[in-house]
């Protein structure tokens, strides 16, 4: 049960809210309070477009607890249009193969459950082939 932890990340999970550095305009996701580009403090919120492309991907066959029912599933590094990279599952793939460079967009999906019927179901961002 990790309710507070997932609750406080809801802006990131549901809307890809990161930050933009007020000093150097660097776009930051996931949010962190020190700009990784210039080292100054960065706390200005910035909502990402959710568009990007696949930098790399893998199909996971041996799933950790909480993800068993989804396996096999595909996890990718997504290079967002605004610059940063995020780790996210690819979804709605159908029969077409995934390729590096494939354009994708963010959608909201069920991510995991706590493994028992009283546990938390976590929702958040995944990415699908851009439509």
């Amino acid at each position: 049960m990790e309710i507070p932890r997932h609750w406080r990340l809801k802006k990131q999970r549901y809307a890809l809210v990161g930050e933009v550095c007020p000093h150097c305009d660097y776009k930051i996701f996931p949010p962190r309070d020190v700009c990784p580009n210039c080292g100054d403090e960065a706390k200005t919120l910035y909502t990402f477009s959710g568009r990007g492309e696949v930098f790399s991907y893998t199909t996971i066959y041996e799933a950790p607890t909480g993800f068993d029912s989804m396996a096999p599933y595909t996890v990718a590094l997504i290079k967002l249009e605004e610059g940063p990279m995020v780790t996210a599952q690819l979804t709605d793939l159908g029969d077409q193969p995934v390729e590096i460079g494939m354009p994708v967009e963010m959608v909201t999906r069920k991510m995991r459950n706590d493994g028992d019927e009283r546990g938390v179901i976590v929702y958040g961002y995944k990415f699908r082939r851009r439509v």
Binding site: I60, A63, V75
Partner: peptide, 8 residues
């Protein structure tokens, strides 16, 4: 931001 996506 990694494990929550099922990344191992």
């Amino acid at each position: 931001f990694e494990a929550v996506q099922g990344l191992t």
